[in-house]
């Protein structure tokens, strides 16, 4: 796969810094868009390469804000974010972001296969059209997520769980190293949940790094290495003294 001739974001391509973690924030503060209201305050977290990190906490805790800031969607008010040791936006193709379902106009007249193909665009850039190799990746990813039979269906005619899988399929098609998943398990059917957990296990085996905002505490212990608790935009110690505490290891640096 060659680099895009005319990348969307010019002149900021950077190679990973050796030994740098996939994602690290340093006393990061982020405001809600267009306001002075702080959504995330003084948060330092770290996701080592190949680790699976869960962000948990109630609504408004700052989980989505942290992911959006790491994806370059929200400006940093204070502190810093490093992706593989580089600033945000230095290596777009290496970071995939899975938004919440509501951010997308599902009435748009494109089939599922075309929707997933958009995961390849970062590798194409301006003017280059998707090639056979891009379509092969899409076909493989659709099969992996149980969407092969729905490839030609308009995206609005999928169930909620199928839409969630289509979003994950697009993120996988990007072949990124760091995946930022915002509530991939929110309000999905059991089949989708099983498929998503299986894919997450595969990604682990492939050495990918996962940072997942989730409400689904039930299977947290099995699916993640590190659990980061957020509340009102602050890092907090996990509530209670259950098995999950033991999973909090050196990869999460608690803010003092």
């Amino acid at each position: 796969m060659s680099d895009p001739r005319f990348p969307y974001s010019r002149g900021r391509h950077a190679d990973p810094v050796p030994d740098a973690p996939a994602l690290a924030t340093d006393r990061l503060s982020v405001c809600y868009p267009g306001t002075d209201r702080v959504a995330l305050r003084n948060v330092s977290v770290r996701a080592g390469r190949g680790s699976r990190v869960a962000l948990v906490g109630p609504n408004g805790a700052g989980k989505s804000t942290l992911l959006k800031a790491a994806a370059g969607l929200l400006p940093v008010a204070a502190g810093g974010i490093r992706i593989y040791g580089n600033p945000v936006g230095a290596c777009h193709h290496r970071v995939a972001y899975l938004p919440q379902r509501g951010d997308i106009d599902w009435t748009f007249p494109i089939p599922v296969s075309r929707f997933v193909l958009a995961g390849r665009y970062v590798h194409l850039g301006w003017f280059r059209r998707p090639e056979a190799s891009d379509r092969a990746i899409v076909t493989a990813v659709l099969a992996r997520l149980g969407l092969a039979a729905l490839a030609d269906r308009q995206i609005g005619r999928l169930s909620g769980g199928q839409q969630q899988r289509a979003l994950l399929a697009r993120a996988l098609a990007q072949e990124a190293d760091l995946l930022l998943l915002d509530e991939p398990l929110n309000a999905v059917d059991a089949e989708t949940k099983d498929i998503i957990y299986a894919v997450m296990a595969d990604l682990r085996a492939e050495g990918k790094t996962l940072v997942v905002a989730t409400h689904d505490l039930g299977r947290l212990t099995r699916a993640f290495d590190t659990i980061i608790h957020l509340q009102n935009g602050l890092l907090v110690q996990p509530p209670g003294n259950d098995a999950r505490d033991t999973l909090v290891n050196e990869e999460a640096v608690w803010a003092g």
Partner: peptide, 22 residues
């Protein structure tokens, strides 16, 4: 010429921004 970019920003401007497309 700009079909795929116009299409993507029409239904998912967020993904466009994430991959550096304004």
């Amino acid at each position: 010429l700009f079909h795929k970019e116009l299409e993507l920003t029409s239904y998912d401007p967020t993904h466009a921004e994430v991959i550096g497309l304004r």
